[in-house]
Simulated scan of single mutants.
Amino acid sequence: MAEQPGAGRPYVPPRDYDHRDVEHVLGVRRWEGWEELLEWLRAEAINDPELSPDVFGPLRQDAERACARGAEFTSDAARLYQELRRR
């Protein structure tokens, strides 16, 4: 029987985004608000070599929720991270 692709690779558990990822996203360009950030997350973030799919997916979902609840957008990474994590 053939070995499964990737069978020899060590398991790397998916990771959630953290404050460093938020700092990176804020450093990509100067965002004017949620809509501009969300447009980038939906269309271009997948091509960002600094963001893995297991990071930008949850980040995008949390940004969608923050925008929908009318959260204030900020370019302060610590405050934005707190807002994104708020449920």
Rank of each mutant, 00 (worst) to 15 (best):
E3S: 13
D76V: 11
T74N: 12
V12K: 09
D48S: 07
V22D: 12
G27C: 01
E44Y: 12
P53K: 05
E50N: 10
L37T: 09
E50H: 10
L41Y: 02
G6F: 06
A66K: 07
A45T: 12
E50I: 06
P5K: 14
R15L: 01
D54S: 08
R15E: 05
Y81G: 04
E72T: 15
W31N: 12
A43L: 13
V25M: 07
I46R: 15
P49I: 08
D54A: 08
R42M: 03
G33N: 10
G33W: 08
A77V: 10
A2Y: 08
D76C: 12
G33Y: 11
L41K: 00
A68C: 04
A68S: 07
Q61S: 07
V55R: 06
P10T: 15
Y11H: 13
R60A: 02
D48L: 06
G33E: 11
R85V: 05
E39M: 01
D16C: 01
R65V: 10
A71Y: 10
T74S: 15
L38W: 02
L80Q: 02
W34Y: 14
A43H: 12
G6D: 02
E83V: 09
A2G: 15
R42V: 04
V55A: 07
R42Y: 14
Y17V: 04
R65N: 11
R30T: 07
Y11A: 05
P49T: 02
V28K: 02
D48C: 01
D18P: 12
G8K: 15
G8V: 12
D48Y: 08
L37S: 02
H24N: 11
D48Q: 06
Q61G: 15
E36F: 03
F56C: 02
V55F: 11
V12S: 07
V22H: 12
A45V: 03
V22A: 09
R30I: 04
V12P: 00
L26V: 00
W31H: 08
W40F: 06
Q4Y: 15
E32C: 08
S75G: 14
E36L: 11
W34A: 03
G8Y: 12
E83N: 11
